[in-house]
Write a protein that binds this DNA or RNA. Sequence first.
DNA 1: GAAGATGGGACAGCCATATTGACGTATCTT
DNA 2: AAGATACGTCAATATGGCTGTCCCATCTTC
Lengths: 178, 178
Amino acid sequence: MAVPSSSPYDNHAHDALLRTASALFLREGEVRRGVELLYFGYTRLTKSIDEGLSEHGLGRAHHRALYFISRQPDLTVSELLSYLAITKQSLGRVVNDLSKRGYIETRAGTTDRRQKLLRLTAEGAAFEAQLFDALRSKLAHAYAGAGQDSVTGFWRVLEGLIPEEERAMVAALQMDER
Amino acid sequence: MAVPSSSPYDNHAHDALLRTASALFLREGEVRRGVELLYFGYTRLTKSIDEGLSEHGLGRAHHRALYFISRQPDLTVSELLSYLAITKQSLGRVVNDLSKRGYIETRAGTTDRRQKLLRLTAEGAAFEAQLFDALRSKLAHAYAGAGQDSVTGFWRVLEGLIPEEERAMVAALQMDER
DNA sequence: GAAGATGGGACAGCCATATTGACGTATCTT
DNA sequence: AAGATACGTCAATATGGCTGTCCCATCTTC
């Protein structure tokens, strides 16, 4: 299958011979580097909030919920579900934990009363802020060391990892940047 | 507490006043953007191999082990442990699974016979390559869309997230690029 | 106003992946 | 010979996911 490839990204398992000569093959090292840096970078960043979480007897799942609720106050359960990409049942546990601890409060939707709008209490906001501080200091340090141009590139590549259909959802988080 | 908030996200418990004027504070939006893109980018990338894994009845833990063994043939159990940052017990299960399936083979260390050197069998290598194809196509697509300069920035920022003490370990993976 | 669709909640049971702590064995080092 | 190290293993536990099923309240549509 002679794909006259100016783009090196069209070769999958089947066309091994083609790949040998392709630019993509030559890039294997760069791809592995990205995989590894993403793995280590991501895990180290998340690790930085684990202590704060376990002090409160919570886990990362709780933080993710806190984070998105903080980011978009009054979001609905189904919106939160689409960010987290887990099942209703799994989210239920997390939300109940956070409610019991007084970190989130809910009220019925205004236009649609079936909806449940989630937002942080003052305590919840303070806790989220504390966790965010750890993320901030780590990421800000990395940003500062790399420089603004690198940060832009960092964003661009990551955006490219997100499927088209989901970009709008991610962008929505930035939209109501206040 | 009257935080004169143009942004709802500046109300962090303690040094609110101090931070208001700091460059770090001004970067909150950029930090949140990085956190979110990292989260979505990382999860979408890993999702791309889940299907290939579950076809074989394996999980992500197995892939991580396969990946590092593939990357550094004949690494020892303790080296693998330091990459994965899990306990011996947790790794044991994963390695046993992979051995039973004939994906990895072991032999005693040459200079130190207490060590167990891990490497992939032909089947293991083929399986790893298949999984890697999914990572490659996703990441290569993101690289291509972002451009080489962005890729460099992407690496730089991620490197900054890895603690000093661990950079050598990560770099070692690139060292014997074959 | 009835029927159906939708948002959300809950029960039961399961699985994957991690943890801690204790202990055992072979091998290397001193 | 003594101790440290590399690796393995037992048992118990936690977390955070999953599926399947059923339910209620509310909105939409005819």
